[in-house]
């Protein structure tokens, strides 16, 4: 049931009518590359996220948080596993090549994983702000996603990320109701993570963005970013925390929050592996891959 299209225009017409592309289809080269790059970055980000989460298993305060961190680690690594499988099916890079490119700093992962989580407060800020930002963008990709295998995996990822967010909300509530020390620790975490989380959505989408044209994304970056801002500004302020943005103001006529100018330099730095924690993160991931090689070998022998 392999389908093919005479031209890119024909293919785009198919997408405009809600067509879903499957791996067996003879899709245009440019589309195949764009879908691959997008899924590879998502897979890398799940893996890097899972490894950070893992670092907090021994340090999580209490058994309940420990259980949730363990489960989240398994979720993220599991998501990476599924995403690398569908990325490899696009036959642009093998899974091994994707791993080697990641460890060589040649492929991208989300900006937030180029920073270091120093305290439990940071971990909670990530679970609350960053996971929500990731969920907002994944929901938007899922809505009209034209690549079948990705759309089906996203449905499950979204369900699980939504579940993570409940942990995030619960943890924030606990910290917000905590001691002055806990509250000021969390305020510091908000100061550190607010801008990276906001920049996760990327700069405003270009008018001719091919990811939008081909229904790999379905909403513009600035719209998603704004949706997140409108939700989190009042939430954090409601808990009595401040947003580290001196330009933030309430536009009463429009009934909306407006933020100050965004400095995109830190985001650009992360995209060339020049973030504050990029080098350490990449070498940790590479070490972990080497150390777990024996597990993969043993499992291959069992399956063979």
């Amino acid at each position: 049931m392999k389908r093919s299209w005479a031209s890119l225009e024909e293919f785009e017409k198919f997408l405009d009518h809600g067509g879903i592309v499957e791996p067996v289809d003879d899709m245009p080269r440019e589309y195949r590359q764009a879908v691959f790059d997008f899924i590879e970055m998502h897979a890398n980000s799940e893996l890097m996220g899972g490894l950070t989460e893992r670092d907090w298993i021994p340090k999580a305060p209490g058994l309940r948080h420990k259980m949730s961190v363990i489960a989240k680690t398994q979720d993220e690594i599991g998501h990476a596993h599924l995403l690398y499988m569908i990325a490899a099916d696009l036959k642009i890079k093998t899974r091994e090549e994707m791993m080697q490119d990641l460890f060589a700093g040649k492929s991208k992962f989300h900006n937030v994983f180029h920073y270091r989580a120093k305290t439990w407060g940071d971990q909670v800020a990530i679970a609350f702000l960053v996971d929500a930002a990731a969920l907002v963008s994944q929901q938007a990709v899922f809505k009209n996603c034209s690549y079948g295998p990705y759309k089906r995996i996203l449905r499950r990822i979204i369900a699980e990320e939504g579940f993570h967010l409940r942990f995030g909300e619960e943890s924030v509530l606990r910290i917000a109701e905590g001691t002055e020390v806990q509250r000021s620790m969390f305020q510091e975490s908000i100061n550190d993570w607010w801008w990276p989380a906001l920049q996760l959505f990327g700069p405003d989408s270009k008018p001719n963005d091919l990811l939008l044209r081909w229904y790999i994304k379905s909403e513009r970056n600035e719209i998603l970013r704004d949706r997140w801002i409108q939700k989190f500004v009042p939430l954090l302020q409601g808990y009595g925390f401040t947003i580290p943005d001196s330009g933030l103001r309430r536009n009463k006529e429009k009934d909306r929050w407006e933020i100050g100018p965004i400095d995109w330099e830190p985001l650009k730095q992360t995209m060339v592996m020049g973030g504050p924690d990029s080098a350490r993160r990449i070498s940790e991931a590479s070490d972990s891959w080497k150390k777990t090689g024996w597990v993969r070998e043993a499992l291959e022998k069992v399956s063979a």
Partner: peptide, 19 residues
């Protein structure tokens, strides 16, 4: 034998390659 969850394993379809 495990995927994102402890109650799920990961298979690959021999027909359409679906995960």
């Amino acid at each position: 034998h495990f995927g994102p969850s402890r109650c799920r394993s990961v298979h690959v379809c021999s027909g359409c390659n679906e995960i």
